[in-house]
Amino acid sequence: MNDASSLRTVDVGGATPYVIAIGPDLLRDGARLAAPVRGRHVLIVSDDTVSPLYASRVRAALVQARPQLQVGELVIPAGEASKTLDHFGAAITALAELGATRDACVFALGGGVVGDLAGFAAACWMRGVDCVQLPTTLLSMVDSSVGGKTAVDIPQGKNLVGAFHPPRAVIADTTALHSLPARELRAGLAEVIKYGAIRDPLFFQWLAAEREALLRGEAGATAQAIARSCEHKAEIVERDPLEKGERALLNLGHTFGHAIETEQGYGAPHNDNLNHGEAVAVGMVLAARLSARLGMAPAADTDTLRALLEAYGLPTTIPAGLDPQALLARMRLDKKNVAGRLRLVLWRGIGQAEVVPDVDEAAVLDVLRG
């Protein structure tokens, strides 16, 4: 089925422990896929890009391992524009039509949009049923599929409606990355670089050294990058499952990035809008520049971060045409803020991120104006 020697696992502890499995051809491994399923009902949620590639494979593997399973499927249009309350409602309707009981399981087969939407539906159906994350993008393998944050977007902002709902398992089939467009691979690598930036200078240096291997999608380097990123996230999530403190560090660059994404309108992936990983890359540079402006960090570290992101083919400046005042207004809606005051993840330099309360809005605006 799959080469056991190439399989990596990461244990996530805490109140609801689970295992992240990382390796090739895991979407064909029926025994592994079926192991977390406690009942008879499975709903596969996917999108119209991923479903034609992998949904029949997952369904066949599940039914071969557990012939009595009743497997339904919901397919949504690909892209951030589908992460809506309407499509959440469609997932709830699909669970109802399946007759899903309290021991049902939702399989999220796709990238971060599918993972967030399917996880939120699982959190809400009958006040919570099981969810298994089957991430098919690098971004979702290292970030959104781990930790149980689920949500949908509304016009006022990203991820403002959601729930914490840890998965029963995360199964990351690295073979799926072979079908990923180069732009999506780079977007995932932005989140990988983030882990080096917030807490692991040696990993940051390794990413600089292994850039060509990672951009080529070499199996060994890619699996190592995914595993290391998941280990970092797992350690943080275990200590802070509901983002009361340390977990906020995982959002380096995200407050700026989400503001950019929201202001440009969650555009379809084929247009000129930045995708999530690209927006986070820009956001990390803005956070580093703000840190330097506030006297927290050396400006040289901002230059080092920007150079690495650009070497990976990622953007580092705000797209033309976005109004700094409008971006600041979006940032005021960020969930990390307290009592209407900006609370941002900034850094002391590479590998030393921290949460800073009550950040001066005038300094933020200066950075947004460039």
Rank of each mutant, 00 (worst) to 15 (best):
S145F: 01
E80R: 13
S140W: 06
G147W: 01
G128M: 08
P135D: 01
A81K: 14
E80D: 15
G119R: 10
T137C: 06
V63F: 05
T93Y: 03
H87A: 04
V71H: 05
P67M: 07
T93A: 15
T137D: 04
C124Q: 12
G115C: 02
G79P: 07
L74K: 09
L69F: 11
C124I: 11
L74F: 01
T136G: 07
I76D: 00
A81C: 14
T137M: 03
A60Y: 07
V142K: 05
S145E: 03
V114G: 02
W125P: 01
Q70Y: 03
R66N: 12
G89E: 08
S140V: 05
Q64L: 11
T150P: 03
G99R: 10
V146R: 07
K83W: 02
G111L: 00
L117V: 02
E97D: 15
M126T: 07
T101Y: 07
L74W: 01
L85W: 04
S144F: 03
L62P: 04
T150W: 00
T136Y: 05
V71R: 03
Q70F: 03
G72H: 07
Q64I: 04
Q133M: 15
K149P: 12
L139Y: 04
S144I: 12
A96E: 07
D86I: 07
E97L: 13
V129D: 08
K83I: 12
T136D: 02
G115L: 01
V129N: 06
Q68H: 12
G148S: 09
L74Y: 01
V132L: 05
T150G: 06
L134W: 00
E73R: 13
G79M: 15
G110F: 00
T93E: 14
K149A: 02
D103E: 15
P77Q: 13
A94T: 12
A151T: 15
F107P: 02
G147K: 01
D86F: 10
A94F: 10
A81G: 14
V106R: 03
V113H: 00
Q133P: 05
L69Y: 11
G111V: 00
V75E: 01
L138E: 09
A118G: 10
Q68A: 15
A81S: 14
R127V: 05
P155E: 00
I92K: 07
L69T: 05
L95C: 12
Q64G: 14
G148A: 14
L95N: 06
V129W: 08
G79H: 13
I92M: 13
T150N: 12
A60P: 08
A104P: 01
A61W: 02
R59H: 12
T136F: 11
T137K: 06
A65Y: 07
G79K: 15
Q68S: 14
A61Q: 08
G147A: 05
P67Y: 02
